[in-house]
């Protein structure tokens, strides 16, 4: 009994010491909290919503973010969470809830800090908001989205998400309005950018997957299967299990 206890104490102590060994030199991760790695948390919750058919996890993160001290960072991630939540509602056919959730996110960005990342997210959300709009407001919203995405790039020329937003806008603009002429260049430019202009676990890094899938779709649409396959190969090496990439594979066979 005594030996068992001793062994147990020894195990606990070794674990404690090893934890000390790894944690302390790693740099005293003093700021660990809800915002550390927040993008992955929100993305995972978004995926979870489709599995459970409920956006509970997303709403829980939204609640947690609201409890944080308000800052440009919390506003950004709250807006991003609203954006994904809106995408979820829209895919479930609840357009009213999708629109209202999206509006909440856009309001946050409108009133908050004007950083390159905020402009990129705002432009992306504005482009998406067009589907809920009165036809007479759609052109104006597209114009504002372009302006915000351009501002994002002007503030940070290495922002992948700024180029991605402009690329998506061009891709979805009908050709008779000049769409599709800049898609390839913009998305290639997006892919040439780092995930983050400055490495930071609290800052956004999304967009590369979307840039790949849209560029591949663009080549498929243009019937340039060789280039589509080239980028598909590159993308699937990076994201082997991404369902959007997998769904494109049938068009490449």
């Amino acid at each position: 009994m005594k030996n068992k206890l001793t062994l147990h104490l020894l195990k606990i102590s070794v674990v404690f010491i090893m934890a000390l060994l790894f944690v302390v030199p790693a740099g005293a991760q003093t700021g660990q909290g809800v915002l550390n790695g927040i993008e992955k948390k929100i993305d995972d919750a978004f995926g979870q919503a489709f599995v459970t058919k409920k956006p509970d996890q997303l709403e829980r993160i939204t609640k947690l973010l609201k409890e944080q001290k308000k800052s440009a960072l919390t506003d950004y991630w709250l807006a991003y969470a609203y954006y994904l939540n809106s995408l979820y509602y829209d895919s479930m056919g609840d357009a009213d809830e999708a629109e209202s959730t999206l509006s909440k996110g856009m309001e946050l960005l409108k009133s908050g800090s004007q950083s390159s990342e905020s402009y990129a997210l705002m432009g992306t959300m504005q482009n998406y908001s067009i589907k809920f709009m009165n036809m007479l407001s759609a052109n104006k919203a597209a114009e504002e989205a372009t302006r915000n995405l351009s501002k994002s790039i002007r503030l940070e020329p290495k922002n992948l998400r700024g180029y991605l937003g402009l690329g998506l806008q061009d891709y979805y603009t009908p050709p008779e309005f000049g769409g599709g002429t800049k898609t390839e260049g913009l998305l290639k430019k997006a892919l040439s950018m780092p995930d983050q202009p400055t490495k930071n676990p609290t800052m956004p890094s999304w967009g590369r997957k979307e840039a790949y899938t849209t560029l591949i779709s663009y080549y498929i649409k243009k019937k340039d299967l060789e280039k589509a396959k080239q980028y598909y190969k590159e993308a699937s090496a990076k994201y082997p299990n991404d369902y959007r990439l997998l769904s494109l594979s049938k068009d490449l066979l």
């Binding site: 740099g27 005293a28 700021g31 660990q32 915002l35 800052s71 930071n200 676990p201």
Partner: peptide, 25 residues
């Protein structure tokens, strides 16, 4: 939540705490 990273070794990084403090080792 300010990211503090060593320029020459960006794997060495930390975040500031709620009082703005950081410690890099």
């Amino acid at each position: 939540y300010v990211s503090v990273s060593v320029v020459a070794h960006d794997s060495m990084s930390t975040l500031t705490d709620s009082a703005g403090y950081f410690s890099l080792t």
